[in-house]
């Protein structure tokens, strides 16, 4: 093999190796940082480790909101199953009973310890997966 060609093959191999390892690093960190979105029914079926951050979507059950000091707790339901959520902080302006909510947090002892509570900036917002069930 002539030296120029040899050099070229080496540089191509180097670039390939470099980009493959770069892309696999990116994909690896993507995979370990995904937030899975569940409804209460789906969540109860799965076996979620308690250190995995998840997203829970559903409706806030009527009459379930309880407050104690700055802590708020409420029940998120998909009208089949329900889960209690505990959150320390201010809930968003559009948070209210019988309205859609998305909770980001950890699933432990059949409860959600929330890091973030989101309500959409749209009064007609429904969490995905629920709009179909509500119509029927």
């Amino acid at each position: 093999m002539n030296p120029i060609r040899k050099k070229r093959i080496y540089s191509i191999l180097f670039v390939l190796l470099f980009s493959v390892s770069g892309i696999s690093l990116i994909l690896y960190s993507l995979n370990s940082n995904l937030d899975y979105f569940f409804t209460p029914t789906e969540l109860k079926k799965q076996n979620i480790p308690s250190d995995k951050r998840i997203k829970l979507g559903g409706m806030v059950l009527k009459g379930s909101v309880e407050r104690e000091a700055s802590e708020i707790s409420f029940v998120v339901t998909d009208y089949e199953n329900s889960l209690r959520v505990i959150y320390d902080g201010i809930v968003p302006d559009l948070f209210k009973e019988e309205s859609g909510v998305v909770v980001l947090g950890f699933y432990r002892d059949d409860m959600i310890y929330a890091e973030e509570v989101l309500a959409k900036h749209d009064e007609n917002y429904m969490p995905p997966n629920l709009d179909i069930k509500n119509d029927s």
Binding site: I26, S29, L30, N33, L34, D35, F37
Partner: peptide, 14 residues
């Protein structure tokens, strides 16, 4: 057929 989202931790890690 599973909803997921990619949040700040991923972008910070990159």
């Amino acid at each position: 057929d599973q909803k997921i989202s990619v949040g700040a931790p991923f972008y910070n890690a990159i």
